[in-house]
């Protein structure tokens, strides 16, 4: 199976310059950690685990994603899908982020049919991260 050049490029950029590609994490104790939502999806036994974190700020009464980070264990297209999702998220409101569909990632990366589950994983990751953020806010 051959990947599109877009998957290959995204994968290679991520490996070459992980920081610039938003690889990383916020951990408990970090300043602003209470404004971070974390979503972990997948399982090692299935060959894919995606961890997505979003940092939100309340701007004019709405929560906007100001930054996002990820780490992914998985095939090349899972790593590329995570990176692509991160690019989409920044600057979006939680509502807009909630509405991102996996199809957008499929289209941008031209994912082959057998790799569509990678994009589904990315969509699930953002839903989890948003839920986590909301549950934290309630606890504030």
């Amino acid at each position: 199976m051959a990947y599109s050049q877009k998957v290959v490029d995204k994968f290679e950029q991520t490996l070459k310059n992980p920081k610039e590609a938003s690889v990383g994490r916020w951990k408990p104790g970090d300043k602003d950690f209470h404004r971070v939502g974390t979503g972990i999806v997948g399982a090692p036994a299935c060959g894919d685990v995606m961890k997505l974190q979003i940092k939100c700020e309340n701007i004019d009464g709405t929560n906007k994603i100001v930054d996002a980070k990820f780490k992914t264990y998985g095939c090349g297209s899972a790593i590329a899908s995570s990176g692509e999702l991160i690019d989409m998220l920044k600057g979006k409101t939680l509502e807009e982020a909630q509405n991102i569909s996996n199809q957008e990632i499929v289209d941008i990366l031209e994912l082959p049919a057998i790799k569509i589950h990678c994009s589904v994983l990315a969509e699930e990751a953002i839903h989890r991260a948003i839920d986590d953020f909301k549950s934290r806010r309630n606890n504030d």
């Binding site: 991520t14 972990i40 090692p44 299935c46 685990v49 780490k71 992914t72 790593i79």
Partner: peptide
């Protein structure tokens, strides 16, 4: 690849991956 792997991160943190309930 380990730098971008959440499993490596957990392993480094001392998390037992076998005890996690994966979704």
């Amino acid at each position: 690849l380990r730098e971008i792997s959440p499993l490596w991160e957990m392993y480094q943190d001392g998390v037992d991956l076998d005890k996690i309930e994966w979704a």
